[in-house]
């Protein structure tokens, strides 16, 4: 593998608008239930002050993808650029991947009885475009990046956020800029 593409999510900028989530649906017109990308609200109690903080997550295109490892029909492949592709034609809907993924990102499509997930808009990337979610992010909280040491050495780059599974399991190709809290003048 020559490189590893992934996402950089800036929780400082993310306001949980869910534009990315719905832009993904708009791009692929996937039915209501599967959510390839999803915005999660961080626990209010995980912070010193109450807050509305979010992160957005799709498939993390892990360096060591569990989905790929457990799939009995080789529906998963990893490209040279690190994108983990799921092939619905091979998928038999056994759901092993949905159980193996620590992030619960392979999604079962109840109508098709098959799994589907984010393929990092590889068709767009191959044409030099950015993924639909990144393009749609209004506050600029979601970026497509190359995951490498120089990124990890930058200050403020986190490999995980409170409440997320240990990155040691699959080495997810996502990095975070953690949420920042301002001062609050409260009445409670």
């Amino acid at each position: 593998m020559s490189k590893q593409l992934g996402f950089l999510h800036n929780s400082e900028k993310c306001v949980g608008c869910r534009g990315c989530e719905i832009a993904c649906k708009n791009e692929y017109q996937i039915e209501a239930t599967p959510q390839w990308r999803k915005v999660f609200q961080l626990h209010e109690d995980d912070f010193s002050l109450p807050t509305r903080m979010f992160f957005s997550m799709a498939c993390n295109h892990c360096a060591h993808p569990e989905c790929l490892r457990v799939c009995p029909v080789k529906a998963y492949t990893k490209r040279e650029d690190g994108i983990v592709i799921h092939d619905p034609n091979r998928c038999i809907g056994c759901r092993l991947c949905t159980m193996a993924c620590p992030y619960d990102r392979p999604q079962i499509n109840p109508a098709k009885k098959k799994v589907e997930k984010c393929n990092l808009c590889y068709q767009r990337i191959d044409q030099g475009e950015k993924p639909a979610c990144v393009t749609a992010c209004i506050p600029g909280a979601l970026e497509l990046v190359e995951i490498n040491d120089s990124l990890d050495q930058k200050t403020g780059i986190l490999k995980t956020l409170p409440g997320l599974p240990s990155p040691k399991i699959t080495s997810p190709s996502i990095r975070f800029i953690g949420p920042k809290q301002g001062k609050q003048i409260r009445r409670d």
Binding site: K13, V15, C17, R52, G182, K183, Q184, I185, R186, R187
Partner: peptide, 29 residues
Amino acid sequence: NEARERGAKLVVIDPILTSTASKADLYIQ
């Protein structure tokens, strides 16, 4: 955000700690 990157401070005054207020340098309930 661009104003903030240039150094502006963001104050949000609101009875509710909204998503916007959660990003403020200073939130006043």
